[in-house]
C-alpha cells in the first residue's frame, strides 16, 4: 500500500512510515503534462509579496514550504499554485504578527464590497 501522511500528522491512520505526501520522488505517476500558462497579475503579486517579505526578514521560503506541506495533498490537488502560495504567505504573516486575523478579515470584507472582479476590487 502506498499511503502517505496527509499533512503534518497522518490523519486517519494508526500507523505510518512517516513519509509525507509532498515527498514525491519515485512514486508512481502518469505522463508529464506539457501545457503551459503565463501568470495573471494577481499571481505575480503573490510571488512579489513572498519575495519582499523574505527580503525584509519576516519569514523565509522554508516557512512558505512548511505551510504548503502542512496544507496537505488535497490542497495540492484542488487549489492552484498561487492560491496555495497565498494561503502560505498569509499564514506566515499571521504567525509573525505582521497583521491580525481581525485586520485581515475586516479588510477582506471591505474588498468584497468594492466589486465583483479582481480589477474592480482594487483600492484605486
Amino acid at each position: 500500500m502506498d499511503r502517505v501522511s496527509a499533512a503534518f500528522y497522518p490523519v486517519g491512520m494508526s500507523d505510518t512510515d512517516g513519509r509525507r505526501w509532498h515527498d514525491m520522488g519515485g512514486r508512481d505517476a502518469g505522463p508529464v503534462p506539457q501545457d503551459e500558462h503565463d501568470f495573471a497579475l494577481w499571481e505575480k503579486r503573490v510571488d512579489a509579496l513572498m519575495m519582499l517579505c523574505s527580503d525584509k526578514g519576516f519569514f523565509t521560503v522554508d516557512g512558505l514550504r512548511r505551510v504548503l506541506e502542512d496544507m496537505g495533498e488535497e490542497a495540492f490537488e484542488t487549489m492552484t499554485y498561487y492560491e496555495r502560495w497565498m494561503a502560505a504567505v498569509n499564514q506566515n504573516l499571521i504567525e509573525q504578527g505582521v497583521y491580525s486575523l481581525e485586520e485581515l478579515g475586516t479588510k477582506m470584507e471591505e474588498i468584497a464590497a468594492r466589486g465583483d472582479s479582481y480589477g474592480e476590487a482594487q483600492d484605486v
Binding site: 501522511s5 503534518f8 500528522y9 512510515d17 512517516g18 513519509r19 515527498d23 520522488g25 512548511r66
Partner: peptide, 13 residues
Amino acid sequence: MAPPGHVRAPYYL
C-alpha cells in the same frame, strides 16, 4: 529517521 515536519532529506534516499 522520519520525524514529522519540514525536512529536506527525500524519503527515497
